[in-house]
Amino acid sequence: MSNPSYFYISIAIVILCIVWTIPDSKQIDADTEICLQHENKIMKCGETISVLHDVFEKAILSAYAAAEKQEKNQTEKYIQDALKHDVQLMTDYKNTLWDMKPSAKLVGNREQQKHVSGNAAMTTVTCWRHDKDLYYTTGFQRYGIRFQNGRLIVPVSGTYHIYSFLGLTERGVTDEGIPVKSNNTQEIIHTMHKYNVLDTADIEIASNVQSRKNASRGNFNYYTSQIVTLVKLRAGDEISVRINDEALLQHTENNYFGLHLI
């Protein structure tokens, strides 16, 4: 769109030329009053400042209306050109724009996460299938969501629905039926964190804590842990899942982790 100051200058020049060249203009008092002929051929006289102010106001409104119309036409032309050259854009671009919200659902891969026995520190879960590995699964990554080092990175700021599910397994009884004495008696802590390069440390968003139990099915203890919440995120925030005992991640293919902009 043209610079608005250009219109002011152009209008001022045009008006001055009109005032100087109109043959039918009758000067009543050059210092205080002026007469101008309007489009309907009617002469209008009045205070110089007031008359010129009305002329300027009408001319400016007309100029801005023309500029707004030109910008609208250029925008529509841009969209039409984009639709011709980008087959991924849907035909009704304007109506579907708000449906193109960033979203992702990662699913666990079949490989066990490498862990250190007895490690009770909070560790990021990294055993996720992502990007092209999500083909032919229930998972997906759409509209700008990226994955890096076990984290989902959001492309735009907004309120997000985030969630995580972990199925956890712990050996409780040996094949001979002898109870396994666990060296780790701590509670199971499952958390979701966010990190941004502008922050100094990871920030915990939500958590789920549960105590350990004795074997309830066969030779293993089975646990499930789920987190679902809403959180306001900034563009560039990295969302991750953490657990305080990696050894519980024996069977990860049923796990999932995701988010979407609401």
Rank of each mutant, 00 (worst) to 15 (best):
P23L: 01
P23R: 01
P23E: 04
D24I: 07
D24G: 15
D24E: 08
D24Y: 10
D24S: 12
D24T: 11
D24N: 12
S25F: 04
K26T: 14
K26V: 14
Q27D: 14
Q27P: 08
I28G: 11
I28F: 10
I28P: 09
I28K: 15
I28S: 12
I28V: 13
A30E: 11
A30C: 12
D31K: 14
D31A: 12
D31G: 12
T32S: 09
E33I: 04
E33W: 07
E33F: 08
E33C: 08
I34K: 03
I34N: 02
I34E: 04
C35I: 06
C35L: 06
C35T: 09
C35E: 06
L36Q: 00
L36S: 00
Q37L: 10
Q37K: 09
Q37M: 13
H38W: 11
H38T: 15
H38L: 15
E39N: 11
E39P: 06
E39Y: 09
N40P: 02
N40E: 00
K41W: 10
K41A: 10
K41V: 07
I42E: 14
I42R: 15
I42F: 09
I42T: 14
M43C: 08
M43F: 06
M43I: 04
M43Y: 07
M43P: 02
K44L: 14
C45V: 02
C45K: 00
C45S: 03
C45H: 03
G46V: 02
G46M: 02
G46A: 01
G46K: 03
E47C: 11
E47A: 11
T48N: 07
T48F: 03
I49V: 13
I49F: 12
I49Q: 15
S50I: 10
S50T: 13
S50N: 13
S50W: 08
V51C: 05
H53S: 14
H53T: 14
H53Y: 12
H53E: 08
D54M: 11
D54A: 11
V55H: 05
V55R: 12
F56R: 02
E57L: 02
E57W: 00
E57M: 05
K58S: 07
K58V: 06
K58W: 01
A59K: 02
A59I: 00
A59D: 06
A59E: 05
A59T: 02
A59Q: 05
I60A: 00
I60R: 01
I60H: 01
I60Y: 00
I60P: 00
L61F: 07
L61G: 06
L61R: 08
L61W: 05
S62E: 04
S62C: 09
A63G: 01
A63S: 02
A63Q: 01
A63W: 00
A63P: 01
A63E: 00
